[in-house]
Amino acid sequence: MELSGIAAYLVSFFTFVGIYAILALGLNMQWGFTGQFNIGVAGFFAVGAYTSAILTVPESPWHVGGFGHPFLVGIAGAMVASALLGLLIGWITARLRTDYLAIATIGIAETLRLIIANESWLTNGVRGMSGIDRPFAGVFQTLGLTSAMGTLIVVTTFLVAVYFLVERARQSPWGRVLRAIRENEPAAEAAGKDIGRFRLQAFVAGSAIMGLGGALYAHYFGFLSPEAFMPLYGTFLVWVMLIAGGSGNNKGALLGAVVIWSIWSGSEFFMSAALPDAWSGQSGPLRVILIGVLLQVILISRPQGLLPERAPKTVPFGKVANRKERA
């Protein structure tokens, strides 16, 4: 009994780590590689979650739905919807300083939260949407696995795929251009790169990844309400993860997700055990202060994070020439 409880906890722990790691990788593409300040992660996360939920849930008298599409269609829809949102925001702010992007993204996240809470025909408002199925539950059942374990496998699969794609992008010439823009915009422009275009591509790609994270969250949790998309959970934790792990470094994003989620969920246990009863209602704010102070300490003492960014191996000039000859 005890053991299965621990196993169930670990499954849930790693599923959350996986989902947050996907969000952190998406943010890494925007902020870590390109220096674009998206402070509305929660908005993209919410669009992904609700899109996938609406596409897949059975019919309900409380909100639109009943399309009954399979899980993978929901995932694809979520990524497309988030990417379109990213395209819109990126297009508006492409020519402006990154402070404007920050303000615009937090604006879109807050506006989306208002829409989700108020348009109950679409999302059932604050009462939330339920009945979102876990992926391939039937298949995993025949293999003797619970649906939670199955979801963990699906989330891990997506995480591995996203990690390899983002890592490949980082090492590619495209990734080099992004870093060049981040480090020295005029120089990148002088080298003939269309800065706005590259920025937009990175922003849209990162948004799509965040949408994927949102969809996976919806299918794992099975229930969505506007509460889950408060800037605290959706945005702040992801930022702390990326900065603690090391922005610009994809392994750092993964490590940050593990470390910060351990601290965040561990502090819940610790505080419920250590705090006197009169204070038990205060554990929420205390945990936020803990993570917030941790962020400030990291920014002051180790801004590069646990795993600092390292440039990919440079290819000696001769090798490139040889490769071309062979081709």
Partner: peptide, 16 residues
Amino acid sequence: VILLISSFGMALVLRS
């Protein structure tokens, strides 16, 4: 922009 991140974190700390 690092100050911006820091102030976003500070916002949550102050509210808490």
